[in-house]
Design a protein around this nucleic acid. Structure first.
Lengths: 333, 333
DNA sequence: TTGAAAGCGATACCAA
DNA sequence: TTGGTATCGCTTTCAA
């Protein structure tokens, strides 16, 4: 079970022909007679010949492999993006190699370096949290392979980007709440260092200032997951709140739980909407209104973009925006 | 940005020395004088020399890359296993390449073939559902690389296996319910073709027959996700049920929702326990009692086992069992 | 129609 | 201490 595959050289020896003849025959070259072709192909099949990809890659300078670097795997959003990438790549000659950066700058840098030395042809990645905090992006520039960034992108880098309309989505969700007579709308997030989260908060602020002339924003709850319930409980007791927008998956779960625990009725007293996996949202009680980033689509587009670039380097850098979808369910009206 | 890395040959030309001198110097060979070593190393650093991994791999016959094949990514369990694998592999010289088989036999077979030709040194995988239905396992035997199977393993194959004590865990959970005076215990699952699910159901049956002398089992609900709620509602109306054990993540969510919708109080009227991600379970209301498969640990052990095998082929095939943990929360007493 | 040989980028043995 | 050369497995050009 553990011995290696048969090689062209060995096949050549068996048939007493040259290596090049074997190679050409197996690649269906017109230079080789039908007779020898069939003979060689039969022998190859018999021995279950599989060309050594490493040798081909070394020769061609390409590996037909794409690296996907994601900050975390414990997250339905990235899982869905991965699914989208995988569905496109599976239909192509490419393979996927995955690195998880654990939101760490060092891990991200190391992954980039490790994989740039011939292992992959290009990268699809979403920037790690720590990298965004440090604002240190040279490791992206130091690789000589094309990069497609998605969701969390670096503004001032020229590369392909697949982005989400974070500002607009939350703006729209907020306005919708306002139109339903919500006047005291809070924000909850367990993350605060990411540009995407900042854009979402900006969308919220803009909606409040444009439609309610609100200029101070004291209902923004930014706490790590293990603290957010307590913090929110305090605020619910101290202030009047009639709607909450949650900006990440676990914030959404925590908000729902906390509001129920404090015996507010949903949505009559407090409406809820937030970022969460659609499938999970459907199985909560009450069913949760979501802002869906359409992760699968993001992954598909990112994969297509990178493959296009790898096959044809002449393209202009793309910046594609995937619109999020608002799915209203039982937690809003 | 898109030009290739500098090579030994080019460095050699610049310094007008031989390629072998460059190679040895960069590998700190004692054969080379300190003077030339430093000179060469400086030049290498200046040009940001990175050895071409493909060439090294071709030469050595090893790639230091591990393939992980998982049936689905939309699943917290596999995400956690992946996390465990990644944490071990990240500390090693190995890389991970991921394939998603989408529960399909063809996808699984294709992944195995595609990656066996020099791309990876070995596999960590969990068998696809369709493969288990077909009982077709030759593609596993046809690869000449070591395989570590986890969770869903093939009984009659000699390879390393990291398994879960499915039978025992559900047996134990069932007995615990019985001891708390539950006499009408139902099972809910959205999957029915997997050996692991079958083992779980066997554990349930054994507990009922051993402790309640029950020999007929008419409270087993096996339905795809979109039907399970309706089916369960009918059964809840027709029969007396005082506990439900759910065997997969989405079954657990669906059961919780359905039981609440039918206005049973939890756990006083109906107790619930099931397979689900711990973190999600904590944020449900009421907090959900879980059987935790300890996916991270499974991944860690699987990765260690494969790396051990790759470094030292002499080991006996291992069969390791990771015990699941029962975490009682608000849905049981 | 077939074969010889160079080359992809590195390592390592053997000479010098 | 340094260099030449074979080699990993394959593709491809040029000769035969």
């Amino acid at each position: 079970m553990s011995q290696n595959n048969i090689t062209l050289k060995e096949l050549a020896k068996i048939l007493d022909v040259s290596i090049s003849t074997i190679s050409k025959a197996l690649n269906d070259s017109h230079e080789i007679s039908e007779a020898t072709k069939t003979k060689i192909k039969e022998l190859a099949k018999l021995h279950n010949y599989q060309p050594n990809k490493l040798a081909i890659n070394l020769k061609s300078g390409k590996t037909k492999t794409i690296a996907v670097l994601i900050p975390s795997i414990q997250n339905y959003f990235f899982a869905k993006v991965l699914l989208g990438i995988e569905s496109v790549v599976a239909k192509s000659p490419y393979n996927i190699i995955i690195g998880i950066t654990n939101e760490s700058y060092e891990d991200e840098k190391e992954n980039l370096q490790k994989l740039s030395n011939g292992i992959v042809d290009g990268f699809i990645l979403s920037v790690a949290e720590e990298t965004q905090i440090k604002q240190e992006f040279n490791h992206f520039k130091n690789t000589n392979k094309p990069i497609v960034m998605f969701d969390r992108v670096v503004k001032n880098m020229t590369c392909d980007k697949v982005m989400v309309n974070d500002f607009d989505s939350v703006y729209e969700a907020t306005v919708d709440l306002i139109k339903n007579n919500r006047k005291n709308i809070a924000i909850a997030t367990t993350i605060n260092n990411l540009s995407v989260i900042k854009h979402r908060i900006e969308g919220y602020k803009k909606a409040l200032s444009a439609h309610l002339n609100q200029v101070e924003f004291d209902l923004i709850v930014e706490e790590p997951l293990h603290l957010i319930s307590d913090k929110l409980t305090n605020i619910l007791k101290a202030k009047k709140i009639d709607a909450i927008i949650s900006l990440d998956e676990f914030a959404s779960l925590a908000v729902l739980k906390t509001v129920k625990q404090n015996n507010f009725s949903i949505p009559s007293e407090i409406a809820l909407i937030g970022y969460m996996d659609e499938k999970v949202a459907t199985y909560l009680t009450p069913e949760f209104s979501t802002i869906d980033q359409n992760g699968v689509q993001i992954g598909e587009i990112a994969a297509k973009t990178l493959i296009d670039r790898l096959e044809n380097k002449a393209l202009e850098p793309q910046e594609i925006i995937i619109k999020s979808t608002i799915n209203k369910k039982a937690t809003t009206n």
